[in-house]
């Protein structure tokens, strides 16, 4: 199987008062066909910048400085906007975090779902309306005909996220980028939305790039995980390996900050400190200042992604010393 999406050496920078500073550096990962890849990390670690770089939708002060993004073997970096537009919404679709603001309040639901069909498939109004109703049924919205004629403010958050998924599914994309799709929803609705995404993925043989900070969602949805910290990939591997044998101290920290049913804990553990800001990024390991295992070597040199096993890498010197960390 060749990879559907291959990101290598991706560095995206933003113009700040002190010149261009990288928000993500040397990011590498691949998504296979039909695979769900989770991208995990706390706020500001570069998850969303990665997805916007893939879509080529960076704001005007951001640019991709290095690296390549291959989608079905086609280079997306530097692709002309006219060609990129044919990919957006058609081959790669995106759903956003805030269902309350992601829908245009002045257009009816049906019209918004039909939008990409009119753009990419040249459907007329009636055809796209009919297809919109089908899509609403697909995402499990009751009374699809009525809802298609409603404005977004009549729908709840969960319903709107279903509509967003319907919009994304309209052109049968090969890759769905979901940027924190369930963060704004309450837990029962989260489960429904995740179920829906899983069902659609299986039906349509679609790949999903799931951006989240919720490891529970990752465990439930993903085949492989990329853990990001301060703009770099710090650990990647199969979900099973990451959860059973987390290697990077940051991943370990993330996992131990989840409450567990089996053992009674007085307090949840947390990772002390904050992500360093991009203006004062340390030269060595970026996690060193918060890491319980940090040594002088960590402060001096930055480790590369070191192999733990064949499909499991971590950016940590502990791997180098012991083979397996901690």
């Amino acid at each position: 199987m060749s990879a559907l999406l291959e990101v290598s050496g991706l560095t995206t920078s933003f113009l700040t008062a002190s010149g261009y500073l990288p928000a993500i550096e040397d990011v590498n990962f691949a998504i296979e066909k039909g695979e769900t890849l989770g991208i995990v990390g706390e706020s500001g670690c570069g998850k969303s910048v990665t997805s916007l770089s893939i879509m080529q939708l960076l704001s005007s002060n951001g640019k991709i400085q290095k690296g390549s993004i291959l989608f079905e073997g086609k280079q997306l970096v530097g692709l002309k906007d006219t060609s990129m537009r044919k990919i957006r919404g058609n081959d790669i679709a995106m759903i956003f975090q805030e269902p309350m603001t992601s829908l245009n309040p002045v257009h009816k639901i049906g019209k918004q779902i039909g939008e990409s069909l009119r753009i990419h498939r040249g459907l007329n109004k009636e055809q796209s309306k009919q297809k919109a109703v089908d899509l609403l049924k697909l995402v499990g919205i009751p009374r699809a005909e009525d809802i298609a004629d409603e404005y977004p403010h009549r729908l709840s958050g969960g319903m709107r996220q279903r509509v967003m998924i319907a919009i994304a599914m309209a052109c049968d994309p090969k890759l769905l980028i979901a940027d924190e799709p369930t963060t704004a929803l309450d837990v029962t609705i989260q489960a429904q939305i995740l179920d829906l995404m899983r069902k659609l993925k299986a039906e349509r043989e679609m790949s999903i790039m799931l951006i989240t900070h919720d490891l529970g969602v990752v465990a439930e949805m993903c085949d492989r995980v990329v853990v990001m910290y301060a703009g770099k990939v710090v650990e990647q591997g199969a979900v099973r390996d990451i959860f059973r044998k987390p290697t990077h101290p940051y991943t370990i920290g993330l996992l131990s900050s989840i409450p567990r049913l089996e053992d009674r804990q007085q307090r949840l553990s947390s990772i002390p400190g904050n992500v360093p800001s991009i203006e004062v990024m340390p030269a060595g390991c970026r996690f060193a200042s918060r890491c319980p295992h940090a040594t002088q070597r960590c402060a001096d040199d930055e480790p590369s992604l070191l192999s733990v096993t064949d499909n499991h890498q971590a950016r940590c010197w502990l791997v180098d010393e012991k083979g397996v960390a901690v």
Partner: peptide, 14 residues
Amino acid sequence: EFEYVQAARALGSR
């Protein structure tokens, strides 16, 4: 600045 404008771009709108 609303997300639906970004969403429209992500749909491939001109």
